[in-house]
Design a protein around this nucleic acid. Structure first.
Lengths: 156, 156
DNA sequence: CTCTATTATAAGAGTGAGTCTCATTATCAT
DNA sequence: ATGATAATGAGACTCACTCTTATAATAGAG
Protein backbone atom coordinates (compact mmCIF):
# COMPACT_ATOMS: atom_id res chain seq x y z
CA UNK A 1 0.00 0.00 0.00
CA UNK A 2 2.18 2.80 -1.32
CA UNK A 3 -0.25 5.72 -0.91
CA UNK A 4 -0.14 5.31 2.87
CA UNK A 5 3.32 6.72 2.94
CA UNK A 6 2.76 9.89 1.03
CA UNK A 7 3.61 12.96 3.04
CA UNK A 8 0.74 14.80 4.67
CA UNK A 9 -0.65 17.66 2.67
CA UNK A 10 0.10 21.01 4.19
CA UNK A 11 -3.13 22.66 5.27
CA UNK A 12 -2.82 25.49 2.75
CA UNK A 13 -2.92 23.02 -0.09
CA UNK A 14 -6.67 23.05 -0.42
CA UNK A 15 -6.59 23.45 -4.16
CA UNK A 16 -4.70 20.23 -4.70
CA UNK A 17 -6.94 18.45 -2.21
CA UNK A 18 -10.05 19.53 -4.08
CA UNK A 19 -8.52 18.34 -7.32
CA UNK A 20 -7.85 14.90 -5.88
CA UNK A 21 -11.36 14.69 -4.48
CA UNK A 22 -12.83 15.84 -7.78
CA UNK A 23 -11.02 13.03 -9.55
CA UNK A 24 -12.14 10.40 -7.11
CA UNK A 25 -15.73 11.59 -7.18
CA UNK A 26 -15.97 11.76 -10.95
CA UNK A 27 -14.37 8.34 -11.30
CA UNK A 28 -17.21 7.04 -9.17
CA UNK A 29 -19.77 9.11 -11.10
CA UNK A 30 -20.58 11.44 -8.27
CA UNK A 31 -20.76 15.21 -8.26
CA UNK A 32 -18.58 17.49 -6.23
CA UNK A 33 -21.41 19.56 -4.83
CA UNK A 34 -21.06 22.61 -2.64
CA UNK A 35 -22.06 20.55 0.39
CA UNK A 36 -19.31 18.04 -0.24
CA UNK A 37 -16.74 20.75 -0.94
CA UNK A 38 -17.50 22.41 2.36
CA UNK A 39 -17.42 19.12 4.23
CA UNK A 40 -14.02 18.20 2.79
CA UNK A 41 -12.74 21.69 3.47
CA UNK A 42 -13.92 21.60 7.07
CA UNK A 43 -12.13 18.31 7.66
CA UNK A 44 -9.00 19.68 6.01
CA UNK A 45 -9.03 22.78 8.15
CA UNK A 46 -9.37 20.84 11.38
CA UNK A 47 -6.47 18.60 10.36
CA UNK A 48 -7.43 16.05 12.99
CA UNK A 49 -10.29 13.61 13.56
CA UNK A 50 -13.46 15.44 14.55
CA UNK A 51 -16.99 14.57 15.56
CA UNK A 52 -20.22 15.48 13.85
CA UNK A 53 -20.92 18.33 16.32
CA UNK A 54 -17.45 19.67 15.49
CA UNK A 55 -18.34 19.73 11.82
CA UNK A 56 -21.69 21.41 12.36
CA UNK A 57 -20.03 23.86 14.67
CA UNK A 58 -17.55 24.82 11.97
CA UNK A 59 -20.23 25.07 9.29
CA UNK A 60 -23.72 25.29 10.80
CA UNK A 61 -25.38 25.46 7.40
CA UNK A 62 -24.63 21.78 6.80
CA UNK A 63 -27.50 19.44 7.64
CA UNK A 64 -26.84 16.51 9.94
CA UNK A 65 -28.36 13.91 7.63
CA UNK A 66 -26.46 15.22 4.65
CA UNK A 67 -23.18 15.21 6.50
CA UNK A 68 -23.61 11.59 7.54
CA UNK A 69 -24.67 10.60 4.04
CA UNK A 70 -21.76 12.35 2.41
CA UNK A 71 -19.25 11.08 4.93
CA UNK A 72 -20.30 7.56 4.07
CA UNK A 73 -20.14 8.22 0.35
CA UNK A 74 -16.74 9.88 0.66
CA UNK A 75 -15.48 7.03 2.81
CA UNK A 76 -16.47 4.52 0.14
CA UNK A 77 -14.34 6.26 -2.46
CA UNK A 78 -11.35 6.73 -0.16
CA UNK A 79 -11.65 10.42 0.62
CA UNK A 80 -12.77 10.18 4.19
CA UNK A 81 -12.29 7.82 7.08
CA UNK A 82 -14.40 7.07 10.14
CA UNK A 83 -12.62 6.08 13.32
CA UNK A 84 -14.05 4.59 16.49
CA UNK A 85 -12.68 6.26 19.59
CA UNK A 86 -14.24 5.33 22.90
CA UNK A 87 -16.23 8.56 22.76
CA UNK A 88 -19.98 8.68 22.32
CA UNK A 89 -19.43 10.28 18.92
CA UNK A 90 -17.58 8.75 16.01
CA UNK A 91 -14.65 10.71 14.62
CA UNK A 92 -14.06 11.54 10.97
CA UNK A 93 -11.02 12.71 9.07
CA UNK A 94 -9.50 12.78 5.60
CA UNK A 95 -8.33 9.36 4.45
CA UNK A 96 -4.68 8.36 4.69
CA UNK A 97 -4.68 8.13 0.90
CA UNK A 98 -4.89 11.91 0.92
CA UNK A 99 -3.09 13.03 4.06
CA UNK A 100 -0.61 10.20 4.55
CA UNK A 101 -0.30 7.44 7.11
CA UNK A 102 -0.31 8.65 10.70
CA UNK A 103 -1.35 7.80 14.24
CA UNK A 104 -3.35 9.42 17.01
CA UNK A 105 -2.89 10.88 20.45
CA UNK A 106 -6.22 10.51 22.20
CA UNK A 107 -6.95 12.51 25.33
CA UNK A 108 -8.93 10.55 27.91
CA UNK A 109 -10.12 13.77 29.53
CA UNK A 110 -11.40 16.01 26.74
CA UNK A 111 -11.63 13.45 23.96
CA UNK A 112 -9.57 15.48 21.51
CA UNK A 113 -7.56 13.54 18.97
CA UNK A 114 -4.30 14.73 17.51
CA UNK A 115 -2.41 13.36 14.50
CA UNK A 116 1.19 12.26 14.92
CA UNK A 117 3.76 10.53 12.75
CA UNK A 118 5.90 7.64 13.79
CA UNK A 119 9.55 7.42 12.92
CA UNK A 120 9.73 5.86 9.45
CA UNK A 121 12.24 3.25 10.52
CA UNK A 122 10.07 1.98 13.35
CA UNK A 123 7.04 2.20 11.15
CA UNK A 124 8.57 -0.22 8.68
CA UNK A 125 9.84 -2.55 11.40
CA UNK A 126 6.33 -2.53 12.79
CA UNK A 127 4.82 -3.33 9.43
CA UNK A 128 7.19 -6.20 8.95
CA UNK A 129 6.35 -7.59 12.34
CA UNK A 130 2.64 -7.20 11.74
CA UNK A 131 2.93 -8.92 8.37
CA UNK A 132 4.60 -11.85 10.11
CA UNK A 133 1.89 -12.04 12.74
CA UNK A 134 -0.77 -11.86 10.07
CA UNK A 135 0.67 -14.63 7.94
CA UNK A 136 1.09 -16.80 11.03
CA UNK A 137 -2.64 -16.32 11.74
CA UNK A 138 -3.59 -16.73 8.07
CA UNK A 139 -4.95 -13.20 8.19
CA UNK A 140 -4.96 -10.80 5.19
CA UNK A 141 -3.85 -7.45 6.53
CA UNK A 142 -5.22 -4.25 5.03
CA UNK A 143 -3.98 -1.54 7.36
CA UNK A 144 -3.12 -0.94 10.98
CA UNK A 145 -4.06 1.65 13.57
CA UNK A 146 -1.84 2.73 16.41
CA UNK A 147 -3.22 5.10 19.03
CA UNK A 148 -1.66 6.51 22.15
CA UNK A 149 -4.12 7.18 24.96
CA UNK A 150 -3.40 9.61 27.75
CA UNK A 151 -3.85 13.25 28.66
CA UNK A 152 -3.23 16.11 26.30
CA UNK A 153 -1.24 19.23 27.14
CA UNK A 154 -4.37 21.20 28.03
CA UNK A 155 -5.82 18.54 30.33
CA UNK A 156 -2.94 17.66 32.60
CA UNK B 1 3.90 -0.08 33.42
CA UNK B 2 5.24 -3.47 34.38
CA UNK B 3 1.96 -5.39 34.57
CA UNK B 4 1.39 -4.91 30.84
CA UNK B 5 4.17 -7.29 30.09
CA UNK B 6 3.09 -10.20 32.20
CA UNK B 7 2.50 -13.30 30.15
CA UNK B 8 -1.05 -14.08 29.22
CA UNK B 9 -2.83 -16.43 31.58
CA UNK B 10 -3.42 -19.80 30.03
CA UNK B 11 -7.14 -20.39 29.68
CA UNK B 12 -7.17 -23.27 32.18
CA UNK B 13 -5.97 -20.97 34.90
CA UNK B 14 -9.44 -19.93 35.98
CA UNK B 15 -8.72 -20.48 39.64
CA UNK B 16 -5.91 -17.96 39.71
CA UNK B 17 -7.96 -15.53 37.69
CA UNK B 18 -10.82 -15.73 40.17
CA UNK B 19 -8.40 -15.15 43.01
CA UNK B 20 -7.08 -12.01 41.39
CA UNK B 21 -10.57 -10.74 40.72
CA UNK B 22 -11.63 -11.54 44.27
CA UNK B 23 -8.76 -9.45 45.58
CA UNK B 24 -9.53 -6.51 43.35
CA UNK B 25 -13.23 -6.61 44.18
CA UNK B 26 -12.76 -6.86 47.93
CA UNK B 27 -10.18 -4.06 47.86
CA UNK B 28 -12.90 -1.91 46.34
CA UNK B 29 -15.52 -3.23 48.77
CA UNK B 30 -17.50 -5.11 46.22
CA UNK B 31 -18.81 -8.66 46.35
CA UNK B 32 -17.81 -11.41 43.95
CA UNK B 33 -21.34 -12.51 43.16
CA UNK B 34 -22.33 -15.44 41.03
CA UNK B 35 -23.27 -13.07 38.21
CA UNK B 36 -19.83 -11.49 38.23
CA UNK B 37 -18.08 -14.84 38.44
CA UNK B 38 -19.92 -16.08 35.42
CA UNK B 39 -19.26 -12.89 33.50
CA UNK B 40 -15.52 -13.06 34.20
CA UNK B 41 -15.47 -16.73 33.36
CA UNK B 42 -17.27 -16.16 30.08
CA UNK B 43 -14.74 -13.52 29.06
CA UNK B 44 -11.88 -15.79 30.08
CA UNK B 45 -13.25 -18.68 28.05
CA UNK B 46 -13.64 -16.60 24.92
CA UNK B 47 -10.06 -15.36 25.29
CA UNK B 48 -10.72 -12.52 22.85
CA UNK B 49 -12.82 -9.35 22.80
CA UNK B 50 -16.51 -10.13 22.52
CA UNK B 51 -19.76 -8.23 22.22
CA UNK B 52 -22.70 -8.22 24.55
CA UNK B 53 -24.68 -10.62 22.35
CA UNK B 54 -21.67 -12.96 22.48
CA UNK B 55 -21.79 -12.90 26.26
CA UNK B 56 -25.53 -13.51 26.44
CA UNK B 57 -25.14 -16.23 23.89
CA UNK B 58 -22.58 -17.99 26.05
CA UNK B 59 -24.63 -17.56 29.23
CA UNK B 60 -28.25 -16.69 28.44
CA UNK B 61 -29.17 -16.52 32.11
CA UNK B 62 -27.28 -13.24 32.47
CA UNK B 63 -29.46 -10.15 32.19
CA UNK B 64 -28.42 -7.46 29.75
CA UNK B 65 -28.62 -4.62 32.24
CA UNK B 66 -26.64 -6.56 34.82
CA UNK B 67 -23.92 -7.40 32.34
CA UNK B 68 -23.49 -3.79 31.33
CA UNK B 69 -23.50 -2.65 34.95
CA UNK B 70 -20.96 -5.23 36.00
CA UNK B 71 -18.75 -4.66 33.01
CA UNK B 72 -18.55 -1.01 33.99
CA UNK B 73 -17.83 -1.83 37.61
CA UNK B 74 -15.20 -4.38 36.65
CA UNK B 75 -13.62 -1.95 34.23
CA UNK B 76 -13.28 0.64 37.00
CA UNK B 77 -11.29 -1.76 39.14
CA UNK B 78 -9.09 -2.98 36.32
CA UNK B 79 -10.59 -6.39 35.69
CA UNK B 80 -12.25 -5.70 32.42
CA UNK B 81 -11.71 -3.47 29.43
CA UNK B 82 -14.06 -2.02 26.84
CA UNK B 83 -12.76 -1.46 23.34
CA UNK B 84 -14.28 0.47 20.48
CA UNK B 85 -14.10 -1.41 17.22
CA UNK B 86 -15.94 0.05 14.27
CA UNK B 87 -18.73 -2.44 14.91
CA UNK B 88 -22.18 -1.49 16.09
CA UNK B 89 -21.46 -3.29 19.35
CA UNK B 90 -18.69 -2.46 21.79
CA UNK B 91 -16.25 -5.26 22.59
CA UNK B 92 -15.20 -6.37 26.04
CA UNK B 93 -12.34 -8.46 27.32
CA UNK B 94 -10.26 -9.07 30.42
CA UNK B 95 -7.94 -6.20 31.24
CA UNK B 96 -4.28 -6.30 30.25
CA UNK B 97 -3.47 -6.22 33.96
CA UNK B 98 -4.78 -9.78 34.05
CA UNK B 99 -4.04 -11.24 30.64
CA UNK B 100 -0.98 -9.23 29.61
CA UNK B 101 -0.38 -6.62 26.96
CA UNK B 102 -1.46 -7.63 23.50
CA UNK B 103 -2.89 -6.39 20.20
CA UNK B 104 -5.79 -7.27 17.93
CA UNK B 105 -6.48 -8.67 14.51
CA UNK B 106 -9.84 -7.28 13.45
CA UNK B 107 -11.74 -8.88 10.59
CA UNK B 108 -13.51 -6.34 8.40
CA UNK B 109 -15.90 -8.99 7.15
CA UNK B 110 -17.19 -10.86 10.19
CA UNK B 111 -16.11 -8.44 12.90
CA UNK B 112 -14.30 -11.06 14.92
CA UNK B 113 -11.35 -9.89 16.97
CA UNK B 114 -8.34 -12.03 17.78
CA UNK B 115 -5.58 -11.38 20.31
CA UNK B 116 -1.97 -11.39 19.15
CA UNK B 117 1.36 -10.56 20.72
CA UNK B 118 4.01 -8.38 19.19
CA UNK B 119 7.64 -9.31 19.27
CA UNK B 120 8.96 -7.99 22.60
CA UNK B 121 11.87 -6.21 20.97
CA UNK B 122 9.67 -4.26 18.60
CA UNK B 123 7.20 -3.65 21.37
CA UNK B 124 9.84 -1.86 23.41
CA UNK B 125 11.17 0.07 20.42
CA UNK B 126 7.62 1.13 19.77
CA UNK B 127 7.10 2.25 23.35
CA UNK B 128 10.28 4.28 23.24
CA UNK B 129 9.22 5.96 20.05
CA UNK B 130 5.76 6.67 21.39
CA UNK B 131 7.20 8.12 24.57
CA UNK B 132 9.28 10.47 22.44
CA UNK B 133 6.30 11.54 20.40
CA UNK B 134 4.29 12.08 23.55
CA UNK B 135 6.89 14.23 25.25
CA UNK B 136 7.29 16.27 22.08
CA UNK B 137 3.53 16.96 22.16
CA UNK B 138 3.49 17.51 25.93
CA UNK B 139 1.15 14.55 26.18
CA UNK B 140 1.03 12.19 29.19
CA UNK B 141 0.81 8.68 27.78
CA UNK B 142 -1.13 6.00 29.62
CA UNK B 143 -1.24 3.10 27.18
CA UNK B 144 -1.33 2.39 23.48
CA UNK B 145 -3.48 0.27 21.22
CA UNK B 146 -2.30 -1.34 18.02
CA UNK B 147 -4.80 -3.10 15.79
CA UNK B 148 -4.39 -4.82 12.48
CA UNK B 149 -7.44 -4.64 10.23
CA UNK B 150 -8.06 -7.09 7.43
CA UNK B 151 -9.74 -10.40 6.71
CA UNK B 152 -9.52 -13.37 8.99
CA UNK B 153 -8.77 -16.92 7.87
CA UNK B 154 -12.45 -17.82 7.69
CA UNK B 155 -13.46 -14.80 5.63
CA UNK B 156 -10.94 -14.76 2.81
C1' DC C 1 -29.93 -17.43 64.51
C1' DT C 2 -32.82 -13.32 63.52
C1' DC C 3 -32.77 -8.53 62.10
C1' DT C 4 -31.36 -4.72 59.63
C1' DA C 5 -28.50 -2.05 56.55
C1' DT C 6 -26.32 -2.36 52.51
C1' DT C 7 -25.39 -4.18 48.00
C1' DA C 8 -26.80 -6.56 43.81
C1' DT C 9 -30.25 -7.87 40.47
C1' DA C 10 -33.32 -7.46 36.40
C1' DA C 11 -37.31 -5.81 33.80
C1' DG C 12 -38.39 -2.30 31.26
C1' DA C 13 -38.59 2.70 30.38
C1' DG C 14 -35.63 6.28 28.57
C1' DT C 15 -31.72 8.44 25.81
C1' DG C 16 -29.36 9.81 21.85
C1' DA C 17 -26.06 8.91 17.99
C1' DG C 18 -26.75 7.49 13.74
C1' DT C 19 -29.84 5.84 9.78
C1' DC C 20 -33.72 5.91 6.73
C1' DT C 21 -37.69 7.98 4.19
C1' DC C 22 -39.50 10.91 1.12
C1' DA C 23 -40.87 15.11 -0.78
C1' DT C 24 -38.29 18.89 -2.75
C1' DT C 25 -34.44 20.91 -5.22
C1' DA C 26 -30.42 21.07 -8.20
C1' DT C 27 -27.84 19.46 -12.06
C1' DC C 28 -26.68 17.02 -16.29
C1' DA C 29 -27.48 15.39 -21.11
C1' DT C 30 -29.88 16.09 -25.05
C1' DA D 1 -36.23 24.05 -22.45
C1' DT D 2 -37.16 19.38 -20.69
C1' DG D 3 -37.03 15.10 -18.90
C1' DA D 4 -34.00 11.97 -16.16
C1' DT D 5 -31.04 11.44 -12.53
C1' DA D 6 -28.58 12.81 -8.38
C1' DA D 7 -28.46 15.46 -4.08
C1' DT D 8 -30.60 17.64 -0.22
C1' DG D 9 -32.70 18.12 4.44
C1' DA D 10 -36.41 17.73 7.85
C1' DG D 11 -37.92 14.63 10.69
C1' DA D 12 -39.38 9.85 11.74
C1' DC D 13 -37.20 5.78 13.22
C1' DT D 14 -33.73 2.25 15.12
C1' DC D 15 -31.22 0.14 18.42
C1' DA D 16 -27.08 -0.11 21.55
C1' DC D 17 -26.70 1.37 25.80
C1' DT D 18 -28.11 3.69 30.27
C1' DC D 19 -31.15 4.69 33.98
C1' DT D 20 -34.99 3.77 37.24
C1' DT D 21 -37.03 1.25 40.57
C1' DA D 22 -38.94 -2.45 42.93
C1' DT D 23 -37.27 -6.85 44.55
C1' DA D 24 -33.79 -10.17 46.16
C1' DA D 25 -29.49 -11.51 48.27
C1' DT D 26 -25.80 -10.96 51.55
C1' DA D 27 -22.88 -9.39 55.42
C1' DG D 28 -22.43 -8.12 59.97
C1' DA D 29 -24.33 -6.84 64.57
C1' DG D 30 -26.33 -8.46 68.49
Amino acid sequence: MKPNHLPKNPPHDLKQLHEQVTTKLSQANYRYTDNRRRLVETLARYGRPVTLPDIINADPALAQSSIYRNLELLENIGVTCRIAIGSEHAHFELAEQLVGHHHHLICKACGTVQDVHLDLQIESLLEESLAQIASRANFSPLHHTLDLHGRCADCK
